[in-house]
Structures are given as structure tokens and as C-alpha cells.
Amino acid sequence: MNAETRLERAMAIVEEVRQAGQVDAETRAQCLDALDGELAGVRGEVEALRREVDGLKAENRRLRQSRGGGEEEPVATRVGCYQFANDDTLYCPHCWDRNKQKSATTRITARHRVCPACSTPLSGR
């Protein structure tokens, strides 16, 4: 049973408890016990999901680092474009800042370039 189903059942039990004001203490106690069980199940489901997310985050970090572009940051700016370590290509700063995508720019003149991905004109000062 997933967390969503358990939460729906817990909410139904809460509604029963609300209406249990007109019933005896034994029925109310049974509803509270059922609610406690459902909430314990939800807690277990949430912990399992949290472990899965942590595992996926670790795998994501590992994959980013293995492809060589993980935590890379620009080291210089030239003609309004970013440069990265050990790479002479000039990249669009807008694409990098927004999406962490390296988009190589195209030269128009010695001082003007354009990004083919986002069409941003770039120029040196």
C-alpha cells in the first residue's frame, strides 16, 4: 500500500472520529487505534521514499561527476561569454546561468557573438 492510499484511509478515519462524538468510547478508541496504525504505515512509506530520494541524489551526483560536467563552473569571461577550465570554447552565459547547459556561441565579428540555442546576442566591451 502506498503513502497516498494510507493518507486517504487516515483522513477517512479522522472523519469517523469527528462523527464519533455521538458514539461510545469503545468505538472512538477503535477509530483512534486504526488511525494510529495508518499513520505509522505512512511514516514507514515516507521513510522509504526519503531513502529512495537520497539514493537517487547520490546516483545523480555520481553520474554528473563521471561525465566530467558535474560541479564545473566558469573560470573566465571573454567577449561576454563564459570559458571553462581546459576549454577554449566560448559559451553562452544565459544558457549556463539558467539551465547549467553549455551552449557554444557563434562568432559574428571579433567583438560580437550569438548563442544558437537561445539567440542571445553577446558582445565584448
Rank of each mutant, 00 (worst) to 15 (best):
Arg51Trp: 05
Asp87Arg: 03
Ala12His: 09
Cys118Asn: 07
Pro93His: 00
Thr89Ala: 13
Arg50Ile: 03
Asp87Phe: 03
Glu38Asp: 10
Arg28Pro: 04
Ala10Val: 05
Ala48Gly: 09
Val75Met: 03
Asp33Lys: 08
Thr77Phe: 03
His94Lys: 13
Arg125Met: 02
Cys115Leu: 03
Leu39Lys: 10
Val79Ala: 05
Ala34Leu: 07
Gln65Ala: 15
Cys115Val: 00
Ala104Asp: 05
Tyr91Ile: 01
Thr5Ser: 13
Thr77Ala: 07
Thr106Gly: 07
Phe84Ile: 02
Glu38Phe: 04
Arg62Trp: 07
Pro121Gln: 12
Gly70Ala: 12
Arg98Asn: 06
Met11Ile: 03
Arg67Lys: 14
Ala40Leu: 13
Thr5Phe: 08
Leu122Glu: 02
Gln30Asp: 12
Arg78Phe: 01
Glu72Pro: 00
Gly68His: 08
Ser123Gln: 14
Glu71Val: 07
Leu122Arg: 01
Glu71Phe: 11
Thr27Val: 06
Ser66Gln: 15
Arg18Cys: 09
Ser123Cys: 09
Gly124Thr: 00
Gly44Arg: 08
Thr5Trp: 06
Gln83Leu: 15
Gly70Phe: 05
Glu52Gln: 14
Asn2Ser: 11
Glu16Trp: 01
Asp87Gly: 03
Asp33Pro: 00
Asn2Leu: 05
Asp24Ala: 09
Thr106Asn: 14
Ala40Ser: 14
Tyr82Cys: 01
Ile13Gln: 01
Gly44Asp: 11
Asp88Asn: 14
Asp87Thr: 01
Glu4Asn: 11
Cys95Phe: 00
Arg50Tyr: 04
Cys92Arg: 00
Ala58Leu: 15
Pro121Asp: 07
Cys81Ala: 15
